[in-house]
């Protein structure tokens, strides 16, 4: 039996399954990161003193620029698909994937520098919450890259069979990716600047 409302919208909600599903998933993600931000507040308020200038603002700012740019390329990948421009869509999706990889390379250098100086999560409360928050965020970047790699590779075949369903998948991936960008928009000032 075919699953209903994969492409067409439900008459009562006006949504297809994937759209409602990804938003409910993002709602759970808000609570996951919310719990960690809440933990950060407890640790920071309870600490007799909080370190400043431990992280490179330049590297953090560069990563912010990279993620914002990747959000633009991601939304353009979806828009190109809606305008039936397959070639441009592929270019934007590859660009998003490349920017995500660049973000991780930057993060690798940042982590290496701190771990090289013995500043791992065990070093202090600040570094414990820094590695927890950025590590979890980094895992989300990797997750997004896996989905993008699938949509660039074997998953791309769906465009010929069912273009509307493929566009829905790109839209859901985009929503997830913008959420990952949104989390970083808050992580950058909280960890690097304040």
């Amino acid at each position: 039996m075919e699953i209903p409302y994969i492409v067409e919208t439900r008459p009562d909600t006006g949504l297809h399954n994937g759209k409602l599903g990804i938003w409910l998933f993002l709602a759970s993600e808000v609570m996951l990161f919310g719990a960690l931000f809440s933990t950060y507040i407890i640790l920071r308020v309870g600490a007799p003193e909080w370190p400043h200038g431990e992280l490179s603002v330049l590297l953090g700012a560069i990563n912010t620029v990279i993620l914002i740019s990747s959000s633009v390329t991601m939304v353009m990948a979806w828009a190109s698909l809606k305008m039936n421009d397959w070639g441009t869509h592929r270019l934007y999706l590859v660009a998003t994937f490349a920017l995500a990889a660049l973000f991780l390379v930057n993060k690798y250098f940042e982590y290496s520098e701190h771990l090289g100086k013995g500043e791992g999560p065990w070093h202090s409360t600040f570094f414990a919450i820094y590695f927890t928050l950025t590590g979890l965020h980094g895992l989300h970047i990797v997750g997004g890259m896996v989905v993008m790699a699938y949509l660039l590779g074997p998953g791309a075949k769906m465009w010929k069979k069912n273009p509307d369903q493929f566009a829905n998948r790109i839209e859901a991936t985009g929503l997830y990716w913008h959420f990952v960008d949104l989390v970083w928009i808050f992580l950058f000032p909280v960890l690097y600047l304040l």
Binding site: S71, M74, L175, H178, D181, L182, I185, F186, F188, P189
Partner: peptide
Amino acid sequence: IAVTKGSMVAAVFM
């Protein structure tokens, strides 16, 4: 600034 940026991402990109 972070809330402004986040709102722009949510309202326009999402």
